[in-house]
């Protein structure tokens, strides 16, 4: 084995290639895509937009990757975004500072994550059902907080989180990159990553090996709730208001998609947050192509679906294996599993 660095690179290679292709498409429809300007103390350019607009999904997919690694799923993240945005907005409109608002939003997110975690880990409800509860109820809760209207605010500090810059770089970019790096660091520098993977692969074996799978499960949903809360604050800050109906709508699906494009199996187990983050950028690049090509918005969703279908087909184990066979000439050892499988294949029968 050639060291951890090269194995990380090998792991994210397919995602990097796809990202490259998506960016290339952008350049084809808009040659100035990579042009970056520095105006009024802020970086401008389409690449910057991709990084900036991709922030919510990037944040969501950090927590989602961990949840999926445990063989779970968190459908409630979009609704949690709405709750967190509403909480932050109502706290600042009540006259508190942006710090208090952020903390309140994070606390709300943590509470939501805890709720999901308890349903899944302690009550043993299937994750897809358990998190569906909050997905449905969450927007109602958010509406209760905003009292049914779009709650606008003008608190500079809070707005800065979504629309401001630090040293010219839009704040959301810094937030998702910092959080991503921090979580990757914690997960890989401690034994957390391995233990999470273990319970995702074989919970029974892991429990018998003395792993505290309940606490780990709760933690994982908690992290997902916190990520969603941050994403919700950013989205609210960006539009200077909390929209309980539309904030984060359908974003849980984008987040799941980012994780899948990142080559993480929905059956749990080995995971890579870095690959998921690249997956989030791929999705945002696809959005950007559609926007830049000037196609009528009716086509957006269809084209996005087609592009994503193409990406998933390219990554499917069968195709990867076929490509491998085409490349390999002459008798060579062939793997029984394709190099980058997404679903665990039965060994026999």
């Amino acid at each position: 084995m050639a060291g951890p660095k090269s194995s990380v690179l090998r792991r994210i290679m397919p995602q990097l290639v796809i990202l490259g292709a998506a960016l290339l498409l952008n350049v084809l429809v808009f040659p100035d895509f990579f042009h970056v300007d520095f105006r009024n103390g802020r970086l401008f350019g389409n690449v910057i937009d991709v990084l900036n607009r991709g922030a919510p999904v990037a944040l969501l997919c950090i927590g989602m990757t961990l949840v999926i690694a445990t063989r779970g799923i968190d459908l409630s993240v979009g609704a949690v975004m709405a709750i967190a945005g509403a909480t932050a907005a109502s706290v600042v409109t009540d006259g508190y500072g942006w710090g208090t608002a952020l903390l309140a939003a994070l606390a709300a997110g943590a509470l939501c994550g805890l709720w999901n975690g308890v349903l899944v880990a302690l009550l043993k409800i299937q994750p897809i059902v358990a998190t569906l509860v909050l997905m449905v109820a969450g927007r109602g809760i958010a509406q209760l907080i905003t009292e049914g209207k779009i709650l606008t605010f003008s608190n500079e500090g809070l707005i800065h989180l979504g629309a401001g810059t630090i040293l010219g770089v839009p704040t959301p970019i810094l937030i998702w990159m910092a959080l991503g790096a921090a979580v990757i660091w914690v997960v890989r520098r401690t034994a957390l990553g391995m233990l999470i993977e273990a319970i995702g692969i074989n919970e029974r074996s892991s429990r018998l090996a003395g792993i505290n799978s309940r606490v780990l499960l709760v933690c994982v949903y908690l992290v997902s709730g916190l990520c969603a809360a941050l994403a919700g604050v950013i989205v609210a800050a960006d539009i200077k208001g909390a929209d309980a109906n539309n904030a984060g709508l359908w974003l849980e699906l984008d987040a799941i998609l980012a994780v899948v494009i990142g080559g993480n199996s929905l059956l749990g187990g080995r995971f890579s947050i870095l690959a998921s983050l690249i997956g989030a950028l791929i999705i945002q690049s696809v959005n950007s192509v559609i926007l830049l090509s000037g196609m009528p918005p009716e086509f957006n969703l269809v084209i996005k679906a087609l592009l994503i279908l193409a990406i998933l087909v390219i990554q499917s184990p069968r195709i990867t294996y076929l490509m491998y066979m085409l490349r390999a000439s002459g008798p060579q050892p062939q793997p029984d599993r394709p190099p980058m499988p997404k679903a665990r294949k039965e060994e026999a029968r």
Partner: peptide, 27 residues
């Protein structure tokens, strides 16, 4: 079903119980 954690490496499988006992904070 009660022993191996199939997709983890042999190394991780061997260390698993000891690591779990030591807690995740102290890899």
């Amino acid at each position: 079903t009660e022993g191996i954690v199939g997709d983890l490496s042999v190394r991780d499988n061997i260390i698993l119980a000891r690591q779990a006992a030591q807690g995740w904070v102290r890899p």
